[in-house]
Design a protein around this nucleic acid. Structure first.
Lengths: 200, 200
DNA sequence: TTATTTTACCTAACAGTGTTAGCAAAGGTA
DNA sequence: TACCTTTGCTAACACTGTTAGGTAAAATAA
């Protein structure tokens, strides 16, 4: 039954081309300008074909978000492997997170930009990301080596992630003026504060 | 020329009713569901009348954002006045910020939720808000009283705002599960870390 | 008071959007 | 060859923001 497999393969190709076209459109014009008809035109198929592969537009964005988190995750893993001590690991991952966000502004905005009405699913994905596991370990080590070993590592993890996102988010808005110097300082300030705050 | 004034008054009434209706719709169904036609129906006028008062839909949202920042600002001022020491002032304002965000989720999401394609203007407004001035003073006092008086107060202010926003933003996403306990702890953790990080 | 101009407002349209029902043609199976 | 399933399309529905053009009322001028 090689025919069925060929069909299946072709179907997956179309699905992939939809995602590719969607992603390209998002990068080009922002996720606000993404439309089913533009995707259809890009993949040279009619509109309803897209609905054979995705339930709705939201599902396409959701898949992009998934890919975004996977890519971010890989960057974080790489950054972590480059460092040795818990401090360095956390610092490296914060920088990697920052770099990913500003290298892929469109991605980041889709991932966190509330581009999707029902945020429940987004939340599930972001929760699902290995992000937590990656940071949890060095955080635990830092806490264990510090002066307050009773500190809840999950709390610290949550704080870390939240504040890092806030930093990125706020600094992404104000890209009008060129204050990249301040941005770097803010990131450094955040990391230093977080790490030293956990030791003492 | 009382007639002209009556007309002017009426025009302002219509304008106010547009904003009121828009706000009510945003609160009810979220800013994603806001539409010119719904506003027109609510104020019992035809659609083009709205365009006599606002250039486009974006301008309406922008006005709502302005009002949001004004309201937030007042809450912050009140919170600051309730406290005396710089530490308490910062803490009170952080709590007030947090409370405002979760008491007015719709507002907060319009204000920071990238509901508007061209973020430049939004940025101008948020920059314009007296938010900075309010926090800058106690931050300066804290720095002056601490062990590192050379610290840049603007840097700390920026860090404070960013992280606070991140905290709110992340915790707003995950409203599916009830983790209000963790939320409170995270906020406390953040404030403690920020204040003590500035002293030492 | 009548004529004229301005204002206020509405209907209807244009160009988009997401989504789906229904149909034609091609492909595979018996 | 006859049948059935899959594949893909056209066309429509119900929305969206925005605007052009016309009408009736109100204010002004004669």
């Amino acid at each position: 039954m090689g025919i069925a497999e060929r069909k299946k393969r072709h179907k997956e190709e179309v699905r992939a081309s939809i995602l590719e076209a969607a992603w390209q459109l998002v990068v080009q014009d922002g996720w606000q300008a993404l439309s089913i008809r533009k995707i259809a035109e890009a993949i040279e198929y009619s509109v309803p074909v897209i609905y054979d592969h995705f339930a709705n537009k939201e599902a396409i964005l959701l898949e992009l978000i998934k890919q975004g988190f996977q890519q971010l995750n890989q960057e974080l893993i790489k950054a972590k492997h480059r460092a040795t001590t818990p401090e360095e690991q956390i610092e490296a991952m914060a920088y990697a997170y920052w770099k990913f966000a500003f290298d892929n502004v469109a991605y980041y905005q889709v991932m966190y930009g509330l581009g999707i009405p029902s945020c429940e699913t987004v939340n599930q994905i972001s929760e699902l990301s290995t992000f937590s596991d990656l940071i949890l370990q060095p955080v635990k080590e830092l806490i264990a080596a510090g002066k307050q070993p009773d500190t809840d590592p999950f709390l610290k993890l949550h704080t870390f992630w939240s504040m890092l996102h806030g930093l990125v988010s706020i600094n992404m808005m104000g890209s009008g003026e060129n204050k990249s110097d301040l941005n770097q300082l803010v990131l450094q300030d955040f990391i230093r504060g977080f790490v030293t705050g956990m030791k003492s």
